[in-house]
C-alpha cells in the first residue's frame, strides 16, 4: 500500500507575525517555520498504518527551498521518501493552483490513500483536500478524527458540530483530511534524523509535472491583509500586578460572584 501525505510548511505557532510592507501577506523573511499542525496528525496516521503492516509513506509538499526542512523532519519521523514541488509561478497561485500541482504528482504516484490536514494553520482555508480529491477523481471525507482499515475499505469518523460524529465508509483509493487531536504525534528520533539524510528527496518544477504557469494562474487574490478593526474590545486593567488583581477581584464582587 502506498500512502501520499500532503504537508505544508507554515509559520511557527509561536512566531511573532507582522504584516508585510505591501500589506498582502506577513513578513516571513526572518521567522521560524514548522510543519502545519493539522498535517502532523495526517503524517502520524500514515506512519501508524505503516507500522501496522506494509506501507510506503510518501511526503508531498509545495513550497520554496525552506520547505526542505519540513520534509526532512517528516522523513526523520519515518516517512520513506519526499517530493517538493516549486516554481516561481506557484508563488502567486491560489488553492486551486496548488491542488492542480498536487494532483499532477498524485496521478503519477497512484497512491492507495491520500492523507492531508483539514486546513493550514496560516490561511485556514481548508480548500486543497476536497479539490485534490476532485481533480484525482477520488472520494473524500474531511475533518476525520478516526479511521480504520476494513478489507480494502476505510471506515472514517468525521467531526460534525456539537460533539456529533458521522461514520462513513469509503472504498480505496480515497482522500481523508485529518482533524487535529486524532493521535499522538511522534517526534523524529536522533536515529530517524540521521537516517532521513539518506532518504530520497526529489524536487520538481511545474514543467516536470507537465504543467505551465497559465495552468496555475490564480482566480483568487488576497488584496490586503490587515489587523481586525478594534471594536469596543475589552477594558484593559492597568497598574501594577497587585493593583490589577485587586481591581479584578472588585469586578468579580460586583458581579455577585464572591
Amino acid at each position: 500500500m502506498k500512502i501520499l501525505v500532503c504537508v505544508k510548511q507554515v509559520p511557527h505557532k509561536d512566531a511573532r507575525l507582522e504584516i508585510s510592507s505591501d500589506e498582502t501577506w506577513i513578513q516571513d523573511e526572518s521567522i521560524k517555520f514548522e510543519i502545519n499542525a493539522y498535517d502532523t496528525y495526517a503524517l502520524e496516521e500514515a506512519l501508524r498504518i505503516k507500522d501496522a503492516g506494509e506501507a510506503e509513506v510518501v511526503i508531498l509538499s509545495i513550497g520554496p527551498d525552506r520547505a526542505i526542512q519540513a520534509l526532512r523532519t517528516a522523513l526523520g519521523m519515518g516517512a520513506d521518501r519526499a517530493i517538493l514541488v516549486w516554481d516561481d509561478a506557484l508563488a502567486g497561485t491560489d488553492s486551486l493552483g496548488i491542488a492542480k500541482a498536487l494532483a499532477a504528482v498524485a496521478k503519477a504516484e497512484q497512491p492507495d490513500l491520500i492523507l492531508t490536514g483539514l486546513m493550514a494553520d496560516d490561511t485556514n482555508y481548508s480548500l486543497t483536500p476536497p479539490m485534490l480529491a476532485e481533480l484525482t477523481q477520488l472520494p473524500h471525507v474531511t475533518a476525520v478524527v478516526k479511521e480504520t482499515q476494513q478489507n480494502g475499505d476505510i471506515v472514517a469518523e468525521r467531526e460534525l458540530e456539537g460533539g456529533a460524529l458521522e461514520v462513513v465508509k469509503l472504498p480505496r483509493p480515497c482522500l481523508l483530511s485529518i482533524q487535529t487531536g486524532m493521535n499522538d504525534v511522534r517526534y523524529a528520533s536522533l536515529k530517524g534524523i540521521m537516517q532521513a539524510k539518506k532518504k530520497p528527496l526529489e524536487t520538481k518544477s511545474l514543467a516536470d509535472l507537465g504543467l505551465q504557469a497559465s495552468d496555475v494562474a490564480p482566480k483568487v487574490t488576497l488584496e490586503k491583509i490587515f489587523l481586525p478593526p478594534r471594536g469596543k474590545g475589552a477594558e484593559i486593567v492597568e497598574g501594577s500586578i497587585d493593583e490589577i488583581a485587586t481591581q479584578v477581584v472588585t469586578k468579580i464582587k460586583e458581579l455577585g460572584l464572591l
Partner: peptide
C-alpha cells in the same frame, strides 16, 4: 479571518 483570527484578509475572485 486569517491566522486563526489574528488578521483579516480582503479578497477578490
Amino acid at each position: 479571518r486569517l491566522f486563526n483570527g489574528k488578521f483579516n484578509g480582503r479578497f477578490r475572485i
